[in-house]
Every structure is written in structure tokens, then in C-alpha cells.
């Protein structure tokens, strides 16, 4: 394998033709991220369609999670992180001063690698977002939101009648679905998922993947994954990252059957990663 470090000035991103079935929801223009002295992301530009699943793949440390965190400005919480470039949601600049991250994050939900239910009851976990944002004024409204969110996350049947139980008492897969329910309780437009299945067993993974498939009817889903099989199973679009660069982006089928870039080819065929 060639040492990627030595390749001078990496080639520009290869973009496949995009089927224009859905409108563009998220667009970025030359987004770069630095952590202190190290640059983690170089000039990433991408256009992600609404109502579909876009997968970010690539070897670990390639910047895909960093990029994901740019979309809801989670990098703000890291002191040393500096983001440049622009991120547009529905054509609206996210990084502008006028945009309050609080509002932005209500619009762009996020699910993390490790399930992180709050140390509260299942009900309070799901009701957390609606409560802090003041989305429900009456108890019945809140009940309705919680039930609807849990149903959408496919967890209702399992937890009905046990809503007072602490969220941490659920199994790993259930916890992850609880966290998804928590995210969709504020009706976000975009849901970011950072390797949502990497801490789960295969059965729970399958359940989450099913859920992702259901959710894409209504949401713009962006999912970072380690597993190419998963990307192939759940996503319509795939972006391949390598060493902080977006190498190739296109419809999933296209990417897997006909990669244009040699690095993509190597990664997909398992030469490295």
C-alpha cells in the first residue's frame, strides 16, 4: 500500500452524478476543522439530500465524525476546535453569529456511538427536549409527544407501562432506540448518527438499521459508520473520507460498484481500514 502521507496535494473530491429525487437539505462549502495545531478536516464540500440516508465511511481518524459534528456545531463545545467554511441547512448559514446553537441543535438531532440516556426515567429522557424548548404546555401534549416518539423509535411496545423506569436500566439496543426517540421528540429536520451501532450486538444492530430505514421517510439522516456492509444496507448516498479529505461522494450503489478513486477502491475492497 502506498503511504498516503506522502501523496502530494490530494486530488480534488470525485463527485458522482446525483439523482435529483429529493431537494438538497444540507450543503457544505470547503469546511475545514483544526484542533489546535493539527488540521482534522480539509475543505470538505458536499450536498446532502433530504429524506434519505447518507453514510459517511472511511478508516478511523479520517475526520468523518468531526465533519458530522460541524453540522450541528457540536465542535463549539470543544475549546481547541476551529471551524472554517460554511455549512448551509435549507440554504441558511449555520456558522453565522445570528444562528443560536440551541435552536440549531433542536433542528439537527444527534445520536452518539455509545448510548447515553440521561440518569432519569424513560419518560423524562424522551420529554427532555420538548421540556427545555417549551414545546408542550400541557401534560397531555407532552404524553402524546413521548408516546409518538417512542412509537417512531419502535420502543413503545417494550416500555409501555414502565415509563418511570430509569433509562439506564434498558439493554444497550433499547437504550440506543431510547436516545433516538429522545432526538426525534423535538421533531428535528436532520438526524446525525455517529456510529450508532458500533456498541451493539448484531440483533440490536439489525433493529436499529430497520429503524433508520423507517425514519428516512421523514428525516434527512446522516450516519457515520465503520461498516461498509451497513452503509450498503441502509444508505442511499455514501461519502468516503480519508485523512481529513472527502475523497469520493455519490449514490451508494454507484460508489460500491464503481468507485472512481483508487483509495475508495482499496478501502471498499478491504485493502486497508
Amino acid at each position: 500500500m502506498t503511504d498516503p502521507q506522502n501523496t502530494a496535494a490530494p486530488a480534488a473530491t470525485v463527485y458522482h452524478d446525483q439523482p435529483s429525487a429529493n431537494p438538497i437539505k444540507v450543503e457544505t462549502r470547503s469546511v475545514s476543522v483544526r484542533y489546535g495545531d493539527t488540521q482534522a478536516l480539509h475543505d470538505v464540500s458536499i450536498r446532502i439530500p433530504d429524506r434519505g440516508v447518507t453514510a459517511f465511511i472511511g478508516p478511523s481518524g479520517c475526520g468523518k465524525s468531526t465533519f458530522l459534528r460541524c453540522i450541528n456545531r457540536m465542535n463549539d463545545t470543544i475549546d481547541s476546535a476551529r471551524v472554517s467554511g460554511s455549512v448551509l441547512i435549507d440554504g441558511e448559514e449555520v456558522n453565522s453569529r445570528a444562528v443560536d446553537p440551541v435552536v440549531l441543535r433542536a433542528r439537527v438531532g444527534m445520536v452518539f456511538q455509545k448510548p447515553n440516556p440521561f440518569p432519569k426515567s424513560i419518560y423524562d429522557n424522551v420529554a427532555y427536549g420538548p421540556r427545555i424548548h417549551g414545546l408542550a404546555t400541557k401534560r397531555e401534549d407532552l404524553d402524546a409527544i413521548v408516546e409518538a416518539s417512542l412509537r417512531k423509535a419502535g420502543l413503545w411496545a417494550e416500555v409501555e407501562g414502565r415509563l418511570g423506569m430509569p433509562g439506564t436500566a434498558l439493554s444497550g439496543g433499547q437504550q440506543q432506540r431510547l436516545v433516538i426517540a429522545r432526538a426525534i421528540a423535538v421533531n428535528p429536520e436532520v438526524i446525525l448518527m455517529d456510529e450508532p451501532c458500533s456498541a451493539l450486538d448484531p440483533i440490536a444492530t439489525a433493529r436499529i438499521e430497520e429503524l433508520i430505514d423507517e425514519l428516512r421517510e421523514n428525516y434527512c439522516l446522516i450516519i457515520v459508520t465503520h461498516s461498509m456492509a451497513q452503509a450498503a444496507r441502509v444508505s442511499q448516498m455514501t461519502a468516503f473520507f480519508h485523512l481529513g479529505h472527502l475523497v469520493e461522494y455519490g449514490p451508494t450503489e454507484d460508489m460500491f460498484t464503481n468507485p472512481h478513486d483508487a483509495r475508495t477502491q482499496d478501502y471498499i475492497t478491504g485493502r486497508f481500514g
Partner: peptide
């Protein structure tokens, strides 16, 4: 096809509380 609440309503609800939260 969609059961998503109109997002502008949610934004309005959020923004009315925003000043107090800040």
C-alpha cells in the same frame, strides 16, 4: 406522506423561550 409538524411552529415555540433561557 409526512407526519412532521410544521418546523416553523417549533422554531417559533423555541424562540419565544430563548431569551429567558439565555
Amino acid at each position: 406522506m409526512t407526519d412532521r409538524a410544521p418546523s416553523s411552529d417549533i422554531r417559533k415555540a423555541i424562540e419565544t423561550r430563548l431569551a429567558r433561557r439565555h
